[in-house]
């Protein structure tokens, strides 16, 4: 193989590898909204404001669930909060970080199996003042290739089995009632 052919092959190989990584990346997590997170910090033990703007705006008045945990060893229990949107796609949480140090902020929205997750990490200073800005993206938790309608189909199966069970139980209870009334009359 001539040297210039090797260079072409190397370039094409890199391109294919990049494409494969990109394809794998987009398939592993279904992309939801992008999120811009502002953390307005007052220091540990003081109210800290976390603002999340989603783009495109998360629709359907989905609530955003925050799971906030210290990344220091021996830290206490994590904090969990659920926030409805103040205006479409915008979520604001006020929370006290009990101690300074590195904190993880995990966020998710969605319903049931069809959930979208994003994560940022921040350092809370003892006397921290100021605003930190993070860019993140919400990625789907379902396996790639799983159609969204599986959840609805699953609930339909559950509903059907629930109805069948209730009908059977009603028939049994009706039998008991009829026999007891008959017993009382004799």
């Amino acid at each position: 193989m001539r040297p210039f052919e090797k260079r072409y092959c190397f370039a094409i190989g890199l391109l294919l590898l990049w494409g494969a990584v990109l394809a794998d990346h987009t398939e592993n997590g279904r992309l939801g909204s992008f999120g811009t997170v502002h953390i307005v910090e007052q220091g540990a033990g003081q109210p800290t404001r976390i603002e999340v703007d989603t783009d495109p705006a998360v629709t359907g008045r989905h609530e955003l669930h925050f799971y906030i945990f210290s990344r220091e060893v021996g830290s206490g229990a994590p904090l969990r909060r659920l926030i409805p949107p103040g205006e479409p796609g915008r979520y604001v949480l006020e929370i006290d970080f009990p101690q300074p140090g590195r904190w993880g902020v995990s966020m998710r929205y969605g319903v049931g199996l069809d959930l979208y997750y994003a994560f940022v990490e921040t350092v809370i200073e003892p006397q921290g003042l100021g605003t930190k800005k993070f860019a993140t993206s919400f990625r789907g938790g379902l396996d790639s290739g799983t159609p969204r309608y599986v959840q609805s189909v699953g609930f339909a199966v559950f509903g059907l089995l629930a109805i069948i069970s209730l009908v059977l139980i009603s028939a049994v209870l009706r039998h008991v009632k009829v026999r007891q009334v008959g017993q009382a009359q004799t």
């Binding site: 199996l113 938790g141 379902l142 799983t146 189909v153 609930f155 199966v157 559950f158 089995l161 069970s165």
Partner: peptide, 25 residues
Amino acid sequence: WHRLFGMDVTLWAPMHLIGVMGLSL
């Protein structure tokens, strides 16, 4: 369900609900 669609992390996953309904009975 788990093999086809992966781990679901909610108690209200359809199959979980069927299991809970069975044990409720």
